[in-house]
């Protein structure tokens, strides 16, 4: 083979090597590891035992169910920054202030956010005192298993919507102001402007925010869960990541944790591929 033919391969070799060596190979090792045992059966091949145990564990099934809840809550998590960005774009009084205030939480680490809300939402904390003043009984925001997951998701949305807001605002920059003026002079009310001008004009941006928010919810809730609920009460706020961490770190079952990681990887793969195909399809429409 001549040097010219060889050159492209040599040039992509570093990137390929790094991906294979540090991404694919460890991934395969991890999957392979998930078919071995822990403790007394350390290193021995155990077939699908880990996976059978995993799906028999109500805690892990609960964690997967919570992932389902996250997916269902996704529209809310996208709608909030979308609405607020719309108001800023429409220049509500004080919109400059809001733009920076809304973005501010995005620079805080989940641990700090979690600690702040631990104080605010504690049973004898300020929020419950406020509810008491208006005559509503206290809510155990983080200690009631029916409420806790929604509390944590709410805090996650609060902490991260600033980034989505900025993306929305940049989307608005591409929106043709003439369309808005035309709609207004035709006598369209605000809901109509949003429904018929803004949403169609921003469809690409909305899709992008959907994808990034989904990824954010599935991959970066660990810090908040860890700080705010430790998976509780009664395991009601477990997510697969937290489950994996408990099994590996606290139960000393690395192979079992690998099996859970493999399942999480597959879930992410399905979600990711669905999103990619969704994006590709809508991309073709343009």
């Amino acid at each position: 083979m001549s040097a010219e033919r060889l050159a492209p391969f040599v040039l992509i070799a570093p990137a390929v090597l790094i991906i294979v060596l540090f991404r694919l190979w460890p991934l395969l090792l991890g999957v392979n590891f998930s078919f071995t045992g822990d403790g007394d059966r350390n290193g021995a091949a155990v077939g699908l035992d880990n996976y059978a145990e995993l799906f028999a564990d109500p805690l892990f099934r609960g964690a997967l169910r919570n992932v389902g809840w996250l997916v269902l809550l996704l529209p809310v998590a996208v709608a909030i920054p979308g609405m607020l960005a719309t108001f800023i774009y429409l220049r509500v009084p004080g919109h400059r202030l809001y733009r920076s205030v809304y973005f501010f939480p995005a620079v805080l680490s989940p641990v700090i956010v979690g600690s702040i809300f631990n104080l605010l939402l504690s049973f004898d904390g300020p929020l419950n005192s406020l509810l008491d003043v208006v005559g509503i009984g206290p809510v155990d925001w983080l200690g009631d298993s029916k409420v806790a997951l929604f509390t944590v998701v709410g805090v996650h949305v609060w902490a991260t919507f600033g980034m989505a807001l900025v993306v929305f605002l940049s989307g608005f920059a591409t929106l043709d102001p003439a369309l808005l003026d035309a709609a207004r002079s035709d006598g369209a009310a605000l809901p109509q402007v949003i429904r018929h001008v803004i949403i169609p004009g921003l469809s690409r941006t909305i899709q992008f925010v959907f994808v990034t928010t989904m990824i954010g919810m599935l991959t970066s809730m660990f810090g908040l869960i860890y700080v705010m609920t430790s998976g509780g009460p009664g395991g009601s706020t477990y997510l697969p990541e937290y489950y994996i961490w408990i099994q590996q770190g606290q139960m000393n079952r690395p192979a079992f944790a690998s099996a859970a990681s493999t399942v999480l990887f597959l879930v992410m793969l399905v979600v990711g591929l669905a999103q990619v195909s969704f994006l590709r399809r809508t991309g073709k429409e343009d």
Partner: peptide, 24 residues
């Protein structure tokens, strides 16, 4: 021509090796 191809190749290989070294 040969020289022009070989040099980047050598740099790339060196980079790849350095990459492995520092990461491990």
């Amino acid at each position: 021509m040969k020289q022009r191809v070989l040099w980047p190749a050598a740099v790339a290989v060196a980079l790849a090796l350095a990459g492995c070294g520092s990461a491990t």
